[in-house]
Design a protein around this nucleic acid. Sequence first.
DNA 1: CTCCAGGTCTGGT
DNA 2: ACCAGACATGGA
Length: 244
Amino acid sequence: MPTNAPHSLTALRDYLRLDTDFAVLADALPWRSDPHLAACLAAFPGLRLPKQPFGETLLCFLCSATKQIVQIKQMVALLAQNHGAVINCGAGSPNPAKAAFGNASLHALPTWTELAQIPEDELRRCLLGFRARYIKQTALFLAECPGWLEETEALPYPDAKARLMKLPGVGEKVADCVLLFGAAKLEAFPVDTWILKALARRYDLTDWSPAQLTRFGRVHFGEAAGFAQQYLFAYERASALGAI
DNA sequence: CTCCAGGTCTGGT
DNA sequence: ACCAGACATGGA
């Protein structure tokens, strides 16, 4: 562990925003008393938690409900391709993405303002299914409330979470993902199917209810629970794929 | 064909 | 407060 690892939660957040080596955050986790977490940390020594744009994170996780990760990627790619502004990478512009994608035009994700203009049935063409309605309604709400997203991101975790959960399609899990990945709120502990499996299987809690497992995770992993969540998630998926 | 996927909402007890 | 179905769609 580097000796300059930050020790307060505020310092950890600042550290996160620099997109440096986040492995030092492990120091804030109870891995010394937790053999499984220790194994996860050892299995993914380079794991990072980059802070991503708040609004884009919200869009991506509004797509995520009961979908496989490969499919979520495809939905997001279609949203960009069909409705996002073209990113200029003409001749002379040293855009590394152009080398990677050849002459295919690159698109940004559509902004919430742009999404508010798109008919729901057109959004549905991006394989969104029933999620199209959530995205459309959220876009219409955000269009009526300029600054709402920025204000939400600036709030403390519990207030930000409560506000996000007022959006259609945003429940506890999606709100936690948006705050963990899009706002670097390390207290956020998103509980998805993988985390439920990990808590039940790796902590010998097979007869616990999902609500009890959730509470266990939030209490056990503490102030940097979201960082622990990433390790549990990565480990459980790799394990399912036979990579571990 | 059936089951599940980085869930949420709604309408029942 | 807790529980079952519905919700779209594709991959395993």
